[in-house]
């Protein structure tokens, strides 16, 4: 074969491979978000995450949950009637390493979180801590949660046995507020419940291999909207390309 043609073919093969990798990763994250939004959290780690025990998940100011079993606790929660959470991703920014074995991507994500609270058939008890997180109320005083949120999902991927898998996921949350309200009005109110809400995210009904499900380390980056805050850029542009 003509050498020039061979080089061109090789370059095209590399481009096709890169596009296939990007498509596969996009599909992986789409599946992640669909499973998350369809009550299929239990499937997410076995199907979509690496098998490497050193995988990690970080959510807002939660600190780094740096073990696969800790990651699982984020996805496997109490399935109370009337609870519902969604992720809808957009604005993909993705970079695959030259060797085709690792990749990194950033998505902007709009989400919802719902807890029917007093309106469900299984309302939380009056002294249940979960009540602090019920940020909306009906005219007659029944409490529930219907929040909208804007997030940045930053992920690292690895190729295992020919398939792309999530290795690290960092969910940065810019704001959340009750539907019908707005994030400016809610900025200070949110600060009161931030911590409790973060702990609640990692509560699971499943037995744990350790007594406590604490973060493995401190928060690496966190920014949330506040009336005095300026936006921050927290993505390594060189790495993403």
């Amino acid at each position: 074969m003509d050498e020039k043609l061979a080089q061109r073919l090789e370059a095209l093969e590399q481009r096709v491979s890169l596009l296939e990798d990007k498509a596969a990763i996009e599909n992986l994250m789409a599946k992640h978000n669909y499973y998350f939004s369809a009550g299929q959290g239990r499937r997410i780690v076995p199907e979509l995450w690496t098998k490497d025990e050193k995988a990690s998940l970080e959510y807002g100011a939660s600190g780094v949950y740096g073990a696969l079993w800790k990651v699982l606790t984020f996805y496997v929660n109490d399935e109370a009637p009337g609870r519902f959470a969604t992720f809808t991703a957009a604005n993909r920014w993705l970079s695959v390493a030259g060797d085709g074995r690792t990749a990194r991507g950033v998505w902007m994500v709009v989400g919802t979180e719902t807890d029917a609270g007093d309106l469900s058939g299984r309302p939380p008890a009056q002294d249940d801590q979960r009540r602090v997180l019920l940020s909306s109320r009906t005219p007659s005083g029944e409490r529930y949660r219907a929040e909208v949120l804007l997030q940045k999902h930053e992920a690292r991927f690895v190729k295992e046995d020919g398939c792309w898998k999530i290795h690290d996921l960092h969910i940065g949350e810019y704001f959340r507020c009750p539907a019908g309200s707005d994030w400016v009005a809610c900025a200070k109110t949110r600060q009161v419940t931030d911590g409790m809400w973060l702990e609640y995210l990692f509560e699971t009904p499943d037995p744990l291999p350790a007594r406590e499900n604490l973060p493995s380390g401190a928060t690496t980056w966190h920014w949330q909207y506040d009336v005095d805050a300026l936006p921050e850029l927290q993505v390594n542009l060189d790495e993403l390309g």
């Binding site: 807002g60 600190g63 949110r190 600060q191 911590g195 973060l198 928060t219 966190h222 949330q224």
Partner: peptide, 10 residues
């Protein structure tokens, strides 16, 4: 002894 304080990771 929490992960947040006044909206900060602190």
């Amino acid at each position: 002894e929490g992960m947040t304080f006044q909206g900060l990771a602190d």
